[in-house]
Simulated scan of single mutants.
Amino acid sequence: MSEEEAKTPRVFLARHGETEWAKSGRFTGVSEIPLNAFGEEQVAGTAKILVGPNKLLDPAKLGCVFISPRIRAQSTFELLFDETEKDRLRTEGKVKTTEKLAEWGYGIYEGLKDTEIRALRKERGLDKEKSWDIWRDGCEEGETAQEVTARLDSLIDEIYAIQSPNMRSESPSDVVLVAHGHLLRAFAKRWLRYPMNFPLSMMLPPGSVGILSYHEHDINQPAFFLGMGFLPSKAE
């Protein structure tokens, strides 16, 4: 990462750690499933390496942390930052819980596995011509791709308002989103201005962090980091 890249505002995508439902492949939307012990270790390990003063995700450079209201996301936020950092961020009004980051509403698919959803849809006479694709078809009695798009676009507008005056980090303007697997991948598509059904395969394991930013310090050129390098420490 060059000096110039380091000065461009970033959006960090922090997926919550593992839960028992995530471990078994169950679609988890509104259900309040807590992190399991391994999930807590995942987030703590990520925090140790990536989060802190002069690290990749430096709390002093944050303009806002947006968090899903689900308990697994709230717990992930608590584990990512130390108590002093959390107190300062809250005192400065930079911690916001928002339904815009709630996981995709799975409707009647809540708690089911992918194979079970496909079997259910077959029983209901669906998908005769094409197999189910959540990015195109959404979820029965849950959210459509258009509904998820609308709330994410609204959140992106909020982020632009924070970052557009600070495209060379004139003020702390990095943003962290603490949320869920499907939702954060959906966010990445909308950040890059792709429709939900755009065939962009992405991986974001539990407890991991992805990074979005801008090309050439330009609010009109949203981008993502394909790879990261790290600046040498000041001592070197």
Score class of each variant (00 low, 15 high):
residue 185 R to K: 08
residue 214 Y to H: 11
residue 191 W to Q: 09
residue 220 N to H: 13
residue 233 S to V: 15
residue 200 L to C: 08
residue 219 I to W: 01
residue 211 I to T: 11
residue 196 M to V: 10
residue 187 F to D: 08
residue 215 H to M: 13
residue 191 W to A: 01
residue 205 P to V: 07
residue 209 V to D: 04
residue 184 L to V: 10
residue 206 P to R: 01
residue 200 L to W: 04
residue 185 R to T: 06
residue 199 P to I: 09
residue 188 A to Y: 09
residue 190 R to D: 05
residue 201 S to A: 10
residue 232 P to I: 13
residue 200 L to D: 02
residue 216 E to D: 14
residue 207 G to M: 09
residue 187 F to K: 02
residue 181 G to Q: 07
residue 229 G to R: 14
residue 191 W to S: 02
residue 201 S to H: 00
residue 213 S to K: 06
residue 210 G to K: 08
residue 220 N to S: 13
residue 209 V to Y: 02
residue 228 M to D: 08
residue 227 G to H: 13
residue 206 P to D: 02
residue 183 L to W: 05
residue 198 F to S: 01
residue 224 F to K: 15
residue 184 L to I: 13
residue 213 S to P: 05
residue 226 L to M: 13
residue 209 V to P: 03
residue 204 L to P: 03
residue 232 P to E: 00
residue 201 S to E: 12
residue 203 M to S: 12
residue 229 G to P: 00
residue 213 S to R: 06
residue 228 M to N: 15
residue 182 H to G: 10
residue 222 P to Y: 08
residue 211 I to P: 03
residue 216 E to N: 13
residue 205 P to F: 00
residue 190 R to C: 08
residue 195 P to M: 09
residue 203 M to V: 14
residue 192 L to M: 12
residue 226 L to S: 14
residue 208 S to V: 03
residue 208 S to W: 01
residue 231 L to F: 15
residue 192 L to G: 03
residue 224 F to M: 14
residue 204 L to I: 04
residue 206 P to C: 06
residue 203 M to D: 14
residue 215 H to V: 11
residue 210 G to C: 00
residue 195 P to Q: 04
residue 189 K to N: 01
residue 228 M to C: 07
residue 206 P to Y: 00
residue 201 S to C: 06
residue 188 A to M: 12
residue 213 S to A: 05
residue 188 A to C: 12
residue 223 A to I: 11
residue 185 R to A: 06
residue 224 F to T: 14
residue 231 L to I: 13
residue 209 V to I: 14
residue 220 N to M: 11
residue 193 R to W: 10
residue 202 M to R: 00
residue 220 N to R: 13
residue 220 N to G: 14
residue 200 L to S: 02
residue 226 L to K: 15
residue 218 D to Y: 01
residue 185 R to S: 08
residue 195 P to H: 08
residue 226 L to E: 12
residue 213 S to V: 04
residue 215 H to A: 14
residue 218 D to W: 07
residue 199 P to N: 03
residue 181 G to D: 13
residue 188 A to P: 05
residue 217 H to E: 07
residue 188 A to R: 05
residue 203 M to A: 12
residue 205 P to Y: 00
residue 233 S to P: 10
residue 234 K to L: 13
residue 192 L to I: 07
residue 204 L to G: 03
residue 219 I to Y: 01
